[in-house]
Amino acid sequence: MAVIAHLSDIHIDDERSVRRTRAVVDYLEDLPYDLDLVLVSGDIADHGTPEEYAVARELLDSRHPVLVCPGNHDDRAAFRRGLLKEPADTAPVDQVFRGAGFTVLACDSSVPGKPEGWLGDETVGWLEEEVRRVPEGDAVLVAFHHPPVALHLPYVDGIRQFGEERLAELAGRHPRITAFLAGHAHTAAATVFAGLPLLVAPGVVNTVLLPWERAAHAGQHVRLDLPPGVAFHVLDEGHRLTTHFRTVSTEG
């Protein structure tokens, strides 16, 4: 059995974002269990500055393995330099994590200068090649920032991942893909894409309201007072995936 903690959208900027991120990471650090992976699915920095990535790198330092992918608020060059300690480069930040019995392929769905997502030809080709390289018997989890389907959140749906038919076709060619993991929506969500689970991590910095919730909150689009959250994806030996969502107190 493998357990993956999945958080997203920490948007490091001010003291509030730092406090909420620290609360989630401290919660994971205090678990009486060694997680197989902590996945952070994008929007690490709020403005993509070197200073924000320096803070994020310190905050995300963990006793657990950590895999971080970029989102639409991130800057590829600064992300590489600040978080991965690699030379500045504007190429897609596509990464592989190999665990015991599973492989996570983290795709860069960001489009420099734009809020919506897209998997470029380079990333789609990389993903196809890496799926073929996954060790026999491993489950394959594909992660990115932007969900490739509408989630019934009008603003988020307008800047979701487009060109999703290419990803769906790839998944159809590779039945070893077990699930897709995303962020971007700032709300916990579970749906289906290409006949497979698509699991969206809750936001850390805030929570996006559903359209039918807004009337009760004076037309607000986000709630700043709701606690940050994390998803736990549990993968058993038969590649069955179970997800639990938890909120984390920021008090004390």
Rank of each mutant, 00 (worst) to 15 (best):
M1P: 08
A5E: 06
D9H: 02
H11E: 07
E15L: 09
R16F: 10
R16H: 10
V18A: 02
V18S: 03
T21D: 02
R22C: 10
A23H: 04
V24N: 05
V24R: 00
E29T: 10
D30F: 13
L31G: 12
L31S: 14
L31K: 14
P32Q: 09
P32T: 12
Y33S: 11
G42L: 02
D43K: 05
I44P: 01
A45C: 09
A45Q: 06
D46C: 06
D46A: 06
D46V: 11
G48N: 03
E52M: 06
Y53Q: 07
A56V: 08
R63D: 12
R63L: 15
R63N: 14
V66L: 09
V66A: 09
C69H: 04
P70S: 11
N72A: 10
N72K: 12
D74E: 11
D75N: 15
R76M: 06
R80Q: 14
R80L: 15
R81F: 11
R81M: 12
L84M: 15
K85E: 15
A88F: 13
D89G: 15
A91I: 08
A91F: 13
R98W: 04
G99C: 08
A100K: 15
A100D: 14
F102N: 01
T103E: 08
L105H: 01
A106I: 02
S109L: 00
S109E: 00
G113I: 04
K114M: 11
K114L: 13
P115R: 13
G117E: 01
D121A: 15
T123K: 07
V124S: 00
G125P: 02
G125K: 09
L127N: 01
R132N: 06
R133V: 07
R133D: 03
P135C: 12
P135K: 07
P135Q: 10
E136M: 04
E136Y: 09
D138K: 13
D138L: 09
L141N: 06
A143S: 12
H146G: 00
P147I: 01
P147G: 01
V149Y: 02
A150L: 06
L151Y: 11
H152R: 13
H152A: 14
L153A: 02
V156L: 08
I159S: 14
E165T: 01
E165W: 00
R166F: 00
L170Q: 06
G172F: 01
H174S: 14
H174F: 08
P175W: 00
T178C: 13
T178R: 10
G183F: 01
G183S: 03
G183N: 05
H186I: 05
T187L: 13
A188T: 08
A188D: 09
A189N: 12
T191G: 11
V192E: 14
P197H: 05
L199D: 05
V200H: 05
V200K: 01
A201Q: 02
P211N: 10
P211S: 08
E213H: 08
E213S: 11
A215F: 12
A218D: 12
G219P: 03
Q220N: 10
V222H: 06
D225S: 08
A231V: 04
A231S: 14
F232K: 04
F232I: 07
F232T: 08
V234S: 11
L235W: 03
D236T: 07
H239M: 00
R240K: 12
L241R: 01
L241P: 00
T242H: 12
T243V: 13
R246N: 10
V248I: 14
T250G: 10
